[in-house]
Design a binder for these strands. Structure first.
Lengths: 245, 245
DNA sequence: AAGTGGTCTAGACCACATT
DNA sequence: ATGTGGTCTAGACCACTTT
């Protein structure tokens, strides 16, 4: 009765979706699978690894393998619109709308030459000076997002934007004060698997993709004033965009 | 000199990003790695599997393991849905792919009871009747998206929407004709690893996430008239959203 | 026919967590 | 001290692709 790793994984997957193993529950371990299915230990290990790379489970070495939980943060890119006009449809994901405590850490600010892609996005000359603001966001103590903003140095060098603490209203309020209020935004995003460094930065477990977002902020006369590259733990977010035809 | 699978993968990854192995190029195979690093075959196999689950490579059994190529489709949500586009007789989808051949296949239309989440999103009673339109999109002969739309059956049952071919302008033009023109849209999306069925449906190689999008279309008086669930091959898309503060 | 990736067994050692 | 996942070796068979 040869049972392959795939078949064992299928079985466990079915038992997860049937509710036999709830989110957070401990799955049968390698020794148990070896015993029950009569396979080698490595086959059992690979079966669990399949579930892990599918994002259905995570392992806690020395303790066990557990069913993953999904409690996403709801990120509404343009809130102003959603409140009034989109009242009647309801969110598909049962994301708790209650805002969770968000911490910002590891803030770094420095000036450097713009990377090619940033110069292009900001409509600057190659290697033009930019102010770079980098930081990480934590929810419930876990890192969920890494963000790096690029702003034209000649525009913001004299403002509080070059300080770690940008003051009330943040970067956008400071931009508004110098007559460069962001009005229009473009976000380009894609999802992919993380590199090992990114995986470490966001403390990702195997099987978790990332969402890479590039947001360009433009003034009312279409001058790009900020380019923000965000890297999100995909398992931690539901993204919402509202728009009108 | 024990070289772990991880280290071999690191080495290959570095050589990929250095340009030694270009997209589409064939990587050293298992036998070569066994020879060069002096490891067991399974270790070499796992090293390559690491790159595959990271989305950096894919295997062509019997032939070799290759560096993955990334040629995304640009999907601009707002532009696609601008009134000019879909009221002037063009398909919603035609707007973004420009020079690539797009096919729609496997169209299915049927009436059924709304699943709970769809009833909620459409603001209908539980188990209210809905028209379901399901189809897959192919680019260059490869499936890139699966979409399933839910519309209130009482609203659209008498229209061409219940036909596989909805006519010029598509579903939205037909809705406009019955005084239910979609004006406001909400897209909620998240990225995750696919289930094995989804992986098959979209012919995904290992290491490719999917993007799951729920789009709710509302009329100007905030009536939800369509809920569209889309499942995208994340490696095939860049998504763009434009909005104003 | 030869080469490739895919998977399996059986046994081994390690680091870590829990008891 | 015991149990857990993580990883490795060495050898085997299979299905498939390429020559």
């Amino acid at each position: 009765m040869p049972e392959t790793a795939r078949q064992i994984a299928d079985d466990l997957r079915a038992r997860i979706s049937s509710g036999e193993f709830r989110p957070g529950a401990r799955l049968p371990g390698e020794p148990k699978l070896v015993q029950q299915y009569g396979v080698a230990k490595m086959t059992a290990s690979n079966a669990l690894k399949l579930l892990i790379t599918e994002g259905l489970a995570y392992s806690h070495p020395g303790s066990g393998t557990y069913v993953r939980e999904f409690q996403p943060i709801h990120r509404a890119a343009n809130k102003r619109l959603s409140a009034a006009q989109w009242s009647s449809g309801q969110s598909v994901w049962a994301a708790d709308t209650a805002d969770r405590s968000v911490e910002v850490r590891d803030i770094e600010v420095y000036e450097t030459e713009a990377p090619r892609w940033a110069a292009k996005g900001l409509n600057l000359a190659e290697q033009a000076p930019v102010i770079v603001r980098s930081r990480r966001f934590f929810v419930d103590g876990k890192p969920v997002q890494q963000a790096t903003s690029y702003l034209p140095a000649d525009l913001v060098r004299e403002t509080q934007i070059v300080q770690p603490d940008t003051g009330p209203g943040g970067v956008y309020a400071r931009l508004a004060e110098i007559g460069a209020a962001p009005e229009n935004f473009t976000e380009e995003l894609r999802a992919r698997m993380p590199s090992s460094e990114e995986s470490e930065q966001l403390a990702l477990t195997a099987g978790t993709p990332v969402v890479e977002i590039y947001r360009t902020a433009l003034t009312s006369d279409h001058r790009p004033v900020e380019l923000n590259r965000m890297l999100l733990n995909a398992g931690a977010y539901v993204l919402q965009y509202d728009f009108t035809s």
